[in-house]
Design a binder for these strands. Structure first.
Length: 478
DNA sequence: TGAAATGTTGGGGCG
DNA sequence: ACGCCCCAACATTTC
């Protein structure tokens, strides 16, 4: 083939990119193209934080390509129309891309592949996003898995993921470049300067993803098992957004982590980290076979669950971090300020929304979708249904986190809440997770007044827990 | 990847 | 010395 289009979506990298590799191998000229078509993802087009990330990532990728005398062509609108138009303009012989696995994306991509082939073009897709594609794993009966452990065992038993490839050192030249639109024209940057905190916390792009992986393997892996539950500690990888946008290949992360497991002291940490990659795989498997789960509970009994109508401002108090419970407020403020939230705290704030406030988990999923830089439909859906008790391998409904105890257990000296909730900074460790229990004498001494310095708790933890249990108990079919 | 209620055990204070 | 009570510490059950 003389010329081929490399259609990029969430594989924004040059290393270990099978579609790019195939394009280079089989054509003299490769035209990298990104089409902005958020409507094609239904109600789940990229949220605000993701759009910011995407803007930066497309910028970084274009710069990398330009260093190789190539460039990224941007288009927007209907994907098929954009590709057809490009094929015609450039006289290219086909389109190569890496697969996505979300319901809307698989449907669209299948239609595009058929349409392009009917037009007489080459259209081929590859796996860049997962270690094990969803349809490669099934139970003995041939069903999809609903429980993590057997799923992961099945993955590990089968053939290992392919070894990752390095990035090409050169890109094929292109004799005549088609027109593209400017990145700014995609209008991805949020209007408000809310993203300043995101920019301070994150550097999107392939180079940053790879260097974060290196940094984590050198400094974090050996302690990962013991430190990953402590949000005040720098104990997790923070690789999720890079994996989501494909700036980092899961195979590269897998292979590098697997190699390090042999190092002294890294076995436990390495195993735990690879297991988390496994949860990402499991989430994609479940979403692929249960495509309704972003919007409907997987466990049908929960269709009837009596979610509370917001009695007025509860959802917003949760979103903004004004619930009066420090670990919740710290988490929600970290999310808003940095576009990311430590996983332990994701579980705590989710449990609080779903069980103590008894607001529908979909409110939480939607808010995370808009505010997380790593928002991923598979992982987000799995996490929220897990918290609600309605999903695959979910926590039993009666497993209700007590945010005070969780705070005391996983943020014992209060460093995390102090970092994000300045109102409680002066409180002694004993009360930093429950300011309402501060004795009156201490209140006066510290000048701390509940309801003024910091809100009273939105709900009573004991009473709301009991109400949630009663609601579950009353569910028909339980 | 729970928390709270309930049950059991054993040390120590005390009459 | 002994029975009794209290309660912390731990284990088990229940939600």
């Amino acid at each position: 083939m003389k010329r081929v289009i490399w259609w990029l979506r969430r594989d924004l990298r040059l290393h270990d990119n099978p579609a790019l590799r195939a394009a280079i191998d089989r054509a003299d000229e490769v035209i990298p193209v990104f089409v902005w078509a958020p409507d094609e993802e239904g109600e789940w087009g990229p949220g605000g934080a993701q759009r910011w990330w995407l803007h930066r990532s497309l910028e970084a990728l274009d710069q990398s390509l330009r260093r190789l005398d190539s460039r990224l062509i941007l288009r927007q609108g209907d994907s098929l129309a954009a590709l057809r138009s490009l094929l015609q303009e450039t006289n290219a012989g086909g389109v190569f891309w890496n697969r996505l696995y979300e319901p809307h994306a698989t449907k669209r991509d299948t239609e595009i592949k058929e349409a392009l082939r009917e037009d007489g073009h080459r259209a081929e897709s590859f796996n860049a996003g997962l270690l094990y594609e969803p349809w490669t794993q099934a139970t003995l009966k041939g069903d999809p898995y609903r429980v993590f452990t057997p799923f992961w065992k099945s993955c590990l038993k089968g053939p290992a993921p392919a070894a990752p490839e390095t990035a090409p050192r050169t890109m094929p030249t292109v004799s005549v470049w088609p027109d593209g639109i400017r990145l700014d024209a995609l209008d991805l940057m949020p209007r408000r300067d809310w993203y300043r905190g995101l920019a301070e916390a994150w550097t999107p792009g392939e180079a940053a993803g790879l260097s974060r992986l290196e940094h984590f393997l050198d400094n974090g892996l050996s302690q990962y098992h013991d430190k990953r539950d402590y949000p005040a500690v720098d104990g997790v990888s923070r690789l999720s957004p890079y994996l989501h946008f494909g700036e980092l290949s899961p195979r590269t992360a897998w292979q590098a982590a697997s190699a390090r497991r042999a190092d002294s002291g890294c076995e436990r940490g390495g195993e735990a980290f690879v297991r988390e990659l496994g949860w990402r795989e499991f989430a994609h498997h479940v979403l692929f076979y249960f495509p309704q789960t972003p919007d409907r509970p997987m466990d049908q009994r929960f269709e009837k669950f009596p979610w509370r109508e917001d009695p007025g401002g509860w959802l917003q108090a949760w979103q903004r971090g004004h619930t009066g419970i420090p670990i919740i407020d710290a988490g929600m403020r970290q999310l808003w300020q940095t576009g990311w939230l430590h996983n332990r705290v994701r579980m705590i704030v989710a449990s609080f929304l779903v069980k103590n406030l008894r607001l529908d988990w979909r409110h939480g999923a939607r808010w995370f979708w808009d505010t997380l830089v790593d928002a991923d439909l598979a992982s987000n859906t799995m996490g929220w249904q897990w918290s609600a008790g309605s999903g695959a391998d979910a926590a039993p409904y009666f497993r209700i986190f007590n945010p005070v105890l969780q705070g005391e257990k996983f943020d014992p000296d209060g460093g995390y809440v102090r970092a994000y909730v300045p109102e409680v900074r002066k409180l002694p460790p004993r009360y930093v997770h429950k300011p309402w229990a501060l004795p009156a004498a201490e209140r006066d001494k510290l000048g701390f007044e509940l309801g003024v310095s910091y809100p009273e708790p939105l709900v009573d933890l004991k009473a709301s827990r009991e109400e949630a249990l009663a609601a579950f108990k009353a569910l028909p079919g339980r």
